[in-house]
Design a protein around this nucleic acid. Structure first.
Length: 220
DNA sequence: CACCAGGCAAGTA
DNA sequence: TACTTGCATGGT
């Protein structure tokens, strides 16, 4: 039993299943993955509600919407001009490469699809992996700022480690399972929000605080 | 008032 | 290659 899996079990027991993005369409999940870049999900939710109200949550409707109007709809998500352009880039890519069909896109080989998505301007590693995991149900582990902060504070990865080093660490520590990757990332975000803030290094009530083999609780 | 939130790309040296 | 900066709304 390795520490990475051990932490997963502790978090699941402590928080319960997070049920991220349940019941939504892959298209809506993909849109959310772009809108949530460096942004609180509450704000993203408002933006998605604006799109839903006008029945714009489909490839055809969103692809046909001028970028200026799209920006206006997603204003609450922040960086709205930037994100409108990024969504357009992604939709144009799916249109030209997969005839606008997400089903066709996700039928592609996962690793080559990942490489192709990464060529879209505005889609980086975390957004690409979020789309693959949460919209496409592909076994790809998503690394985010919380993952880096939590696991480096617990001395399981180095502070200078980048996205791919951390992703490899998780990949080789866990079974290749979509549901596990889905739940684990959601649990990490939950833990980060509640116990591992950027400006508050001390995790007094942190559920990981009592584990053997860690230098926890983190003292500052 | 300051700081943060489920990043990314472009600019600088 | 390794930092730094712009992007922007809404909650605490």
């Amino acid at each position: 039993m390795n520490k990475v899996y051990e932490i997963y079990e502790i978090l699941l027991a402590h928080f319960g299943p997070q049920e991220w993005w349940p019941g939504d369409t892959p298209f809506e999940i993909m849109v959310g993955a772009v809108l949530t870049q460096n942004t609180n999900w509450d704000n993203v939710s408002r933006a998605i509600d604006n799109l839903r109200k006008e029945d714009l949550l489909s490839f055809e409707r969103l692809h046909g919407l001028p970028v200026e109007l799209l920006a206006e709809k997603i204003r609450p998500a922040g960086y709205f001009n930037l994100k409108a352009a990024r969504l357009k880039n992604l939709l144009n890519f799916i249109n030209s490469e997969y005839s606008g069909s997400l089903g066709e896109m996700f039928a592609d080989d996962t690793l080559s699809l990942r490489e192709k998505i990464l060529t879209v301007k505005g889609i980086g590693p975390e957004t690409a992996d979020s789309i693959l995991l949460y919209a496409g149900n592909k076994p790809v582990f998503v690394v985010d700022a919380y993952t880096h902060r939590i696991f480096s504070r617990h001395d399981l990865v180095a502070p200078e480690d980048g996205y791919y080093e951390i992703q490899e660490y998780f990949k080789y520590s866990l079974p290749d399972n979509v549901d596990l990757f889905n739940e684990y990332h959601a649990l990490i975000v939950r833990l980060g929000k509640e116990f591992c803030k950027k400006s508050k290094p001390q995790c007094v009530q942190c559920p990981l605080g009592k584990m053997d083999g860690f230098k926890k609780p983190i003292d500052i």
